[in-house]
Simulated scan of single mutants.
Amino acid sequence: MSYIQEIPEIEKYWDNFSDEYSSQDDATNVFYLSLLNMLKVNTRKQILEVGAGAGFLYNHTMNYKRPEASYVATDLSEKMLSILCKRLQIQEGFRDQLFVEKYNLKVEKANGEQLQYSDNTFDCYIANLCLQITTNPEKMIAEAFRVLQKGGVAGFTVWGDKAKSYYFNIVPEVLAKYGIQPPASRPMFHLNDREKLIKMLEDAGFTNVICWNQFSPFHHQTEDEFNRLLNYPRNLEAFAMAGDKSQEVKQECLKRMMDHIQLNKLPLGLDGLIIIATKN
């Protein structure tokens, strides 16, 4: 993927990536559960989620929040929101906006940098793993502050420690060993600086900031499970760059994954940086 610079490019990328992502997004559910817990979602009345994606844990979320609490789930990608609706067994097809009375849930397309909601509308704002994707993180944080009521809380997660996010490193490292440089892509770890992230929220007006790293392990442990990971289209495209050595590159990636489990006695997984703050 080339370096993403504009919102329409982000929308197109996630529309195209939605099926692949929805088959593996269970790997990041630890971050989302931490947000629900630390934001005390079960006590909130008007909740907004930006970048809701494919709604992997929405069956849990809709039971966790108060029945009378309104929940607005938004994303740039209509395909992601369609998958979210299917997971909740919502029969209506998603088109721009959908209200589900059973859950007091509104599903809506929205751009986190330019939200369509009035000032002081929500008492809770959630953004899981999308702040580092947007073109202007400061603008997205400012919008979160704007739409929150006084006393409202916001929670963001971004990718954390790159070294601990070993899954992201394996394929590029092996390709580099074979003298292959993958195309430049938007840096995923450009916000993985705890002090920088805290300052960004405080500069926007947030207070009572709490920020910490958290590791989310993959459940994958067998060769077959790791092979399925390596067979995702994005990885296969990377292997194809190695030409007649593509299978050799893939096998070395598989070996590194298995060694990580068997020799290091560590799970493969991803590290996140989580930040919670209040609008006072």
Score class of each variant (00 low, 15 high):
Q149L: 09
A154H: 03
P182T: 15
V158H: 07
D161K: 10
Y166H: 10
K196M: 13
K162L: 04
A163S: 07
H190G: 07
K150M: 12
S165C: 06
L191V: 02
V171G: 05
G160C: 00
D161N: 14
N192K: 02
M188E: 07
K196S: 11
K177A: 13
P187T: 00
N169K: 05
Y178I: 04
P182E: 15
V158W: 05
P187N: 14
I170G: 01
S165D: 06
V153Y: 11
K164A: 09
K162G: 04
G152K: 09
G152P: 11
Y167L: 12
L175N: 01
S185G: 13
Y178D: 08
F168T: 02
D161I: 03
V158P: 02
T157V: 01
P187C: 04
R194C: 12
A176W: 12
A184Q: 15
V171M: 06
R194G: 13
A184E: 15
P187L: 05
S165L: 00
Y178K: 06
F168V: 02
G160N: 03
E173N: 08
F168Y: 03
W159H: 03
D161Q: 08
W159T: 05
P172K: 06
K177F: 12
S185N: 13
A176Q: 11
G152C: 06
P187R: 04
D161F: 05
I180N: 08
G179R: 14
A184D: 12
P182V: 08
G152F: 04
V158Y: 06
A184S: 11
Y178H: 09
K150L: 15
P182H: 14
P183A: 09
L175I: 02
A176T: 07
W159A: 00
G151T: 04
V171F: 04
T157N: 00
V171I: 15
Y178M: 04
V171E: 06
L191E: 09
G179L: 10
T157C: 07
Y167T: 11
Q181E: 14
G152N: 09
S185A: 14
W159I: 00
L175F: 02
Q149G: 02
Q181Y: 07
A154N: 03
W159E: 01
A154Q: 06
R194I: 15
K150H: 12
V171W: 02
G155E: 09
K164N: 01
E173P: 02
I180R: 05
Q149K: 14
L175Y: 04
G179I: 10
S165R: 07
A163P: 00
I170F: 04
F168L: 01
K150E: 11
E195R: 10
V153N: 15
N192C: 01
K177T: 14
K162W: 05
I180E: 10
L175H: 00
H190V: 00
A184M: 14
F168R: 00
N169H: 02
Q181I: 12
S165H: 03
Y167D: 06
M188D: 05
L175R: 01
V174N: 07
G179E: 14
P187I: 05
G155H: 11
G152M: 10
V174F: 13
K162T: 05
N192W: 03
W159K: 03
Y167M: 13
F168H: 01
Y166K: 10
K196H: 15
R194K: 15
I170Y: 03
Q181R: 13
Y167V: 12
I180H: 09
G179Q: 09
